[in-house]
Amino acid sequence: MTATDPVLLCYCTCPNAESARHLAEALVGERLAACVNHIPGIQSTYRWKSEVTTDTEELLLIKTTAARFEALKERVLALHPYELPELIAVPVERGHVPYLDWVRAAGGD
Score class of each variant (00 low, 15 high):
Cys14Tyr: 03
Ile39Met: 11
Thr54Leu: 07
Leu77Trp: 14
Leu60His: 08
Glu57Ala: 02
Ala78Cys: 07
Arg21Ile: 00
Arg68Val: 02
Gly41His: 02
His96Met: 03
Arg104Ile: 05
Leu59Trp: 11
Val90Cys: 09
Arg68Leu: 11
Glu30Phe: 13
Leu79Phe: 02
Arg21Tyr: 03
Ser19Ile: 06
Ala67Thr: 15
Gly107Tyr: 05
Asn16Trp: 00
Glu30Tyr: 10
Glu25Gly: 07
Asn37Lys: 09
Thr54Tyr: 11
Thr13Met: 00
Gly41Thr: 00
His38Asn: 09
Phe69Ile: 07
Cys35Trp: 01
Leu60Val: 11
Ile42Thr: 06
Arg68Tyr: 08
Glu93Trp: 13
Ala106Trp: 01
Ile62Gln: 01
Leu72Asp: 08
Thr13Gln: 00
Leu32Asp: 15
His38Lys: 09
Pro91Thr: 12
Leu27Arg: 06
Arg75Asn: 10
Ala106His: 05
Met1Asn: 07
Thr53Cys: 14
Val76Arg: 08
Val36Pro: 09
Ala17Phe: 05
Ala106Met: 12
Gly107Ile: 00
Arg47Asn: 10
Glu58Trp: 10
Ser50Trp: 06
Tyr82Ile: 02
Asp5Gly: 11
Gly108Arg: 14
Asn16Met: 04
Ile39Glu: 02
Tyr99Ser: 03
Leu100Trp: 07
Ala78Pro: 14
Pro85Asp: 10
His38Cys: 11
Cys35Phe: 08
His80Tyr: 11
